[in-house]
Structures are given as C-alpha cells and as structure tokens.
Amino acid sequence: MSHSIPSGSRWRWYIVFFVAPATLIYTVFAIYPIVESLRLSLFAERDAVEAFVGIDNYKKLFTEPYWADQFWNAFKNNVWLFVLHMLIQNPVALALAAILSIPNLRGAATYRTIFFLPTLLSVVVIGFIWQLILSPLWGITPAFMNFMGVGKFFAPWLGLESSALTAVTLISIWQYVGIPMMLFYAALLNIPEETLEAARIDGLNGWSIFWKVKLPLILPTLGLVGILTYIGNFTASFDLIYTLQGGLAGPNGSTDVMGTFMFRTFFGFQAQLGDVNMGATVASSLFFIILIGVSVYLFGVQRRLQRYQA
C-alpha cells in the first residue's frame, strides 16, 4: 500500500503539511456541525427542556408503527433505487465510456459533452421539464407513443403508486449517468496501449479485448462506482424526489426514500413541524447503513478486486 521511506524517529513535517489543511477545514465545517446535530438523537424534548434519553429515540424509530413503517418503506424504496441504478445506470455508463474510448472515434469530445450535459442542470429545471414531458396533459409523451404505435401503453406514471418510483429513478439515471461514465472513461483511457497491442497480437478481437482485457483492468473502478452509487442513492436522491414529488414523496408515500424521510422529519414540512431529535435519529441510522456498506467495500470488495487485478 505505501511505498514509504523507512521512517526515522524524527517528526515528518511534510505529512502534516499534506493532511492537516484538509483535516482542519473538514473537521471544523463538516464534522463539528454534523456531530452537533447527530448527538441530538440521544435527546428529546421533555416539558420544554432537552433531556438525555439514551437510545429511546432509536427504539421509537424501530418499534412505533408510525416511524417504523416510514423507515422501512423508505429503505425498501432506496433498495429499489439502488438496484435500478446498478442494473441500468452503470452498465449504460460503462457501454458509453467503452464506445467513447475507441481510439480515433470521430466526434468523441462532442458526444462526451452531450452525454454529460444533463448532469450539469439544476434539479429545478429537470423536475419541470420531465413533468412536462411525462405529463398526460401537454401531449409530449402521448404523442410520441402514438406515433410509435404504442399509445395505449401510456399512463400517468409519475402519479401512480405502482410506477412513480421507477419513473423518478429513470429520470435520476438520465441525469446522473454522466458521472460513472466519466469515471469509467478515465479508467479505460488509463489502460496502457502496450497491453492492448499485446492482446491484438494474440489475435483477440475488439469484443473479447473489452471483456478479457479491459474489464478486468478496470474492476477497481467498477467497485468504486458501485460504492459511490450506493452512497449517492441514500444521500443525493433527496433533491430530485423533493422537486418532482414534493415533501410527502407521493403518491401515498410511494417515492419516499431515506433522504426525503430524513429531511421531512428534521426540518418539517408544511403543517408538520420539524423534529430535530427524530430527524437526527433517522440521520444517524442512515449513517450506519452507509457505514456498513462502505466498510464492506473497503475491507471486502476492494481488497479482493485489487488482489484479482494483481
């Protein structure tokens, strides 16, 4: 892992120089405020005073039906969100990156920019435009589907409990596919030309070079994208769903995810007052869920991938 020069007993200032600035800013402006908030999960308001209640809030979250139902509903929806991103977003991103990395492809830079454009947009406009496109009223999708002869399959997807979450997820994939694409692309371009040349001399064609040479070489990036998808699925999905489906994540809570649940609880929504204690409890639980995923990755998947590669 580290190719370090053997350390003497002397204090190596350059290490401080490298890690201290980031650690300092991060500790003061990220960790401190977050810890200040998360510790509230151990308190509750009793008779207008904040009182230490231990893990009572966690008990409440997992045993009281009102909380537990929301938690597991949001969790279940997050799992679906994750599965769809893994099954659709990342393969599409990989395919696009693979095509774009073909040497001397004409217009590669233009295509790459086009594919990344949706990622640059703010959710306000993405929410507006996709609601407009998918709307049963303004005719864009219905007209297109009629033209393709499949008009009878049109449904107001964003408004149906059965399809809203999937529709929202597909919009999210449309928006974010550029990020894994860039990561794959950077990894694919990093493969030394000699390796590929050697494969060609061995008589492999483009297809099998991709599967047998390139893919194994970029496995660590696949793992990285997987864990980033896992994290983003819990933390970044909030904005889009809030914009598209509102704070209650309708219809009937069917698009509620951990992010919307957490922010709704913490900050309140409309007539619902914010509850910082329960909000912090949800956030802390989410923190552990993500931590477990990241640990599995760091100590399980990642090591195996590197061993495989070596």
Binding site: A30, I31, P33, I34, E36, L38, L291, V294
Partner: peptide, 20 residues
C-alpha cells in the same frame, strides 16, 4: 475519518454552522 462526511449530509448541521 476523512470519508465519514460522505455519509451524512452537512445540511443537517446547518444550525451549528450558522452559529459558528
């Protein structure tokens, strides 16, 4: 420690940040 911050949105710490 340095990657823990990925796991909780800073937005939750808004009040502490503002006070700071």
């Amino acid at each position: 420690y340095l990657i823990l911050g990925i796991m909780v949105p800073i937005r939750l710490g808004t009040v502490a940040l503002l006070e700071l």
